[in-house]
């Protein structure tokens, strides 16, 4: 599709260890449009963070291996792009990352202001296309650009509703609250004017009231600036709040992709249905999903969900289901998908 901003095709990533090779991403397809907020949901260990890191080119070098696939972005394949180009043109510029654990994103020994200066020195949007684009450690940071950057920073800190931005810049990371640190992360992510923000469980550590504030902010800024967001979470309520479309992953494979309303009203994959059923609700009580998440070192062949699926038949044990369209925007990988009229299990 022409309007696709990024498209991941048949991505396979494995991690080697003493115990064997874990196939952590196994043939993942995912395409995100410009300006779209896409939810990536699934239980912990299903590969959400690994996918995010693969897109950014920051998988751990010594243990991770990309077995196959491509990640098309701006007419190029990020997987074959040289690291120098990735570092100077894409990562932290056009694609930015809000990591799962914000405490690791800041260096505790420098003030927030110093860290933002360092970011802007190399990733400022004013650099785009300019002569000093290629970064070097001893690069100068011209006075005018620094002043212009500083003005932008203050503007964004105000936009994310940080009270008294000048004072925040003088603080150390541990001196601001969790909610404020998350606001800072969002501001810093938006500073380079990226096209895609990857937000990895950005509100998992926050309370509901602060979560609501942060989600609201993320949604508003993405809309206003036309930025696409890949929002990974295992909180379906948070996904419901801000996403346009949702992709479900199970054990390293995407299994369903749907617009947010279709996702919650007409789940077509048995796993999606069970995920929704396991949300605590007063009508249904507390229901888990029987069985366990498979080990990725020797995952079940065919559909990886088959050992836990009541609908499984012979073909499920041998063949991974291809994507099938439920409607124009909704697709599912299941040999025996649920029909829209089927009652809840």
């Amino acid at each position: 599709m022409a309007s696709e901003l990024i498209s991941v095709r048949n991505l396979r990533v494995s991690f080697g260890s003493d115990a064997g090779t874990a196939k952590v991403l196994d043939g993942v397809d995912l395409a995100i449009r410009a300006g779209e907020i896409r939810g990536l949901v699934g239980e912990s260990g299903c590969g959400k963070t690994t996918l995010a890191r693969a897109i950014l080119g920051i998988l751990p070098r010594n243990s991770a291996r990309i077995e196959s696939g491509e990640i098309r972005f701006g007419g190029r394949d990020l997987l074959t792009l040289p690291e120098s180009a990735l570092a100077s043109e894409v990562r932290g510029r056009e694609i930015v990352y809000i990591p799962q654990d914000p405490s690791t994103a800041f260096n505790p020994v420098f003030t927030i202001g110093t860290q933002i200066d360092d970011l802007m020195r190399f990733k400022s949007p004013l650099l785009r296309g300019g002569a000093d684009d290629r970064q070097g450690f001893f690069n100068s940071y011209p006075r005018e650009r620094r002043a212009a950057d500083r003005a932008r920073v203050l503007e964004l800190l105000r936009l994310v509703q940080l009270p008294n931005p000048e004072a925040v810049l003088r603080k150390y990371p541990h001196e601001v609250s969790g909610g404020q640190r998350q606001r800072l992360m969002i501001a810093m992510a938006l500073l380079p004017e990226p096209k895609l923000v990857i937000a990895d469980e950005p509100t998992t550590a926050l309370d509901v009231t602060v979560q609501a504030q942060i989600l609201k902010l993320l949604k508003q800024l993405a809309r206003e600036r036309g930025v696409a967001v890949l929002f990974t979470t295992h909180d379906l309520g948070a996904a419901y709040e801000i996403c346009d479309r949702i992709t479900v992953m199970y054990a390293g494979q995407e299994v369903e992709e749907a617009p947010v309303d279709g996702f919650f009203e007409r789940p077509s994959h048995p796993y999606t249905r069970k995920l929704l059923d396991s949300l605590p609700s007063s009508e249904a009580g507390i229901r888990g999903i029987a069985g366990e998440i498979p080990r990725l070192i020797d995952p079940p062949p065919g559909c990886r969900f088959h050992p836990r699926c009541e609908r499984a038949t012979g073909i499920c044990r041998t063949e991974r289901p291809p994507p099938e369209a439920v409607d124009a925007l909704h697709s599912v990988r299941c040999h025996h998908r649920l029909s829209a009229t089927e009652p809840a299990s």
Binding site: Q213, Y240, E241, F264
Partner: peptide, 24 residues
């Protein structure tokens, strides 16, 4: 009241469209 108003309700109106409690 604010705490309860902040819980996402799947299928209901979006909390992020209405939530008002500010600050921490």
């Amino acid at each position: 009241q604010s705490l309860l108003a902040a819980i996402p309700r799947i299928g209901g109106p979006r909390v992020t469209d209405s939530f008002a409690l500010e600050g921490e």
